[in-house]
Design a protein around this nucleic acid. Structure first.
Lengths: 133, 133
DNA sequence: TTGCTCCTCACGTCACGTGAGGTGGC
DNA sequence: TTGCTCCTCACGTCACGTGAGGTGGC
């Protein structure tokens, strides 16, 4: 029979920068840059970086936010929302306000992307007919 | 009775840089930058710039492309598609290829934006409940 | 020893932002 | 003369890209 009891003192799984870069499809430079800006703080062994659960969770949010058009500074502020210490009411209200503005921008962006898709499709159709296909 | 005949030798309507900036919601600097990069070429009267129909049409496409994530260099190449001289078959095929890749990216981007919208909405709901509203 | 992966500077790039200092015509 | 709008440099900024030159352990 297998042992049903696993010690939760099991060491956290740690990844090297190259593995993280592959996982999130970013460059090493990008990961170091985000660290420089205070967005993440991997552990160190010697001079090498090691990324755990917390850093990977933050990275997911950073990259999502970045792809959506947030500045890294905005993202840094928002990340605090997901940290347990974020209990300050005034700060939460501020985050709500920012989120509202961003939702507006996101909807605008979605419309722009959709318009772009349809325009590109139109252009492709025209070019194809010009090529006689 | 009104005159039904309008001379089509009527002077083209020309706009100053400030008017164009308002219309397209960009800065003067942006318009001068695009000119510097060869994307537009307004007429000059003395040192002042004057924008006609052609420039405004190009600007619409430039800004749409930019908002959608094209580089200005990509946009410059694409603009040639809309110019009458673009008859070269090889060039049209190349544009088709580029358009296909871009459609792929646009669809990815649309999905990212949609995911961002729903994540932000989720976060807003959580924060609101924490604030007891 | 050779490869691989990691490291730290540090300059380059892209798309503008932001003054500085000045001209032109209502 | 004062305001307004326009002009040309030219340095700054943001989010990295891209080497240069070097270290560490399988």
């Amino acid at each position: 029979v297998q042992n049903m009891v696993k010690p939760d003192t099991a060491a956290e799984e740690l990844f090297r920068i190259g593995e993280i870069a592959d996982e999130f499809k970013v460059t090493l430079r990008t990961l170091r840059f985000y660290e420089d800006k205070g967005l993440i703080g991997p552990k160190r062994v010697g001079s090498s970086r090691l990324y755990g659960r917390r850093e990977r969770a933050r990275l997911r949010l950073i990259i999502l936010g970045r792809d959506i058009g947030f500045s890294l500074e905005d993202i840094r502020e928002m990340l605090d929302l997901y940290e347990p210490k974020a209990g300050n009411k005034a700060q939460l209200r501020l985050a709500l306000e920012k989120a509202g503005e961003q939702l507006q921008r996101l909807n605008d962006q979605k419309r722009a992307v959709e318009e772009g898709i349809s325009r590109l499709n139109d252009a492709v159709a025209i070019v194809k007919s010009q090529l006689g296909e």
